[in-house]
Amino acid sequence: MSSKQTVNPKLETQNSKPDRHPMDELLREDRLPHIWCSGCGIGVALTCFIKALQKCGLDLDKVVVVSGIGCTGRVAGYVNLDSFHTTHGRAIPFATGLKLANPELKVVVFSGDGDLIAIGGNHLIHAARRNVNMTVICVNNFNYGMTGGQVGPTTPPGAITSTSPYGCFEHPFNLPYLAAASGAVYVARWTTLHVRRLEKSILEALHKRGFSFVEIISPCPTLYGRWNKQRTGLAQMQYYHDQGVIRHGLDPKEADIGLHGEIIEGVFVHIEKPTFLDFCSDALAKSVG
């Protein structure tokens, strides 16, 4: 991929304004303010993503962001890149179609835990298995925010939500373990408190050949936090500070998250293996020339 950073003519004009924020180039200013609540972590996740994009050296005209449905699903609507807001759960297979149709694209899926892990869970494991070249950024706030805070596949056991009023009775998915077991070549987890490490991980994921997965543990004080003794964004960040433990290279099956328990962070998988397109081009070169 070219390292040239192409600048859209529209952006050049906007850049001449003196009062612009350094990230405005990559945001759709005409869509701001965003819909996210005060204390929500999705803005922090987006900030880290944009910083990583600014440093990545990729041709940004070739970077495409795909989201599904939900609070994090709105990210696609705020980035000033080619961006798609698809159906619930289907961001990853949409991204698969884009990437395979035009391998020059750098495809990033940016969505939430309900979208990617519950309704879209099957697509996540299969895209990881195929090792399709894409970066998946999953913001995990332990509940369905857009619909008012329901229990989800990442909700810790015992957590109260609007549909688990007596506490969550289900075992949650451990996302790094799931992604690693499914075949992802890069797997990391960070909280929104650890912004520099998170930004570095996103940058590594963007440059990785194959299926890269970054989980971002993110506050949802409006819905998840208020029922679970973390009523403010600050209280949730304090929890990440007190309970966040960095363990690079740890076997991700050790990285379960319990209610108010330790949050193990780090880069767990960083390996190389042939991608779907590598397999295609090698095998087909031999068979059909």
Binding site: V66, F84, T86, T87, G89, R90, P93, F94, A95, T96, G97, L98, K99, L100, A101, N102, L105, N122, H123, H126, F276, C280, L284, S287, V288
Partner: peptide, 29 residues
């Protein structure tokens, strides 16, 4: 498809098949 520079991909279900086709169309194919 491979003989003529196209792509065949077998998806995990028909939900994926349909949206993958839509993604490919936006990819210009």
């Amino acid at each position: 498809m491979p003989q003529i520079g196209g792509t065949y991909v077998q998806m995990e279900d028909e939900l994926a098949s349909m949206i993958t086709v839509l993604g490919a169309s936006w990819g210009g194919v």
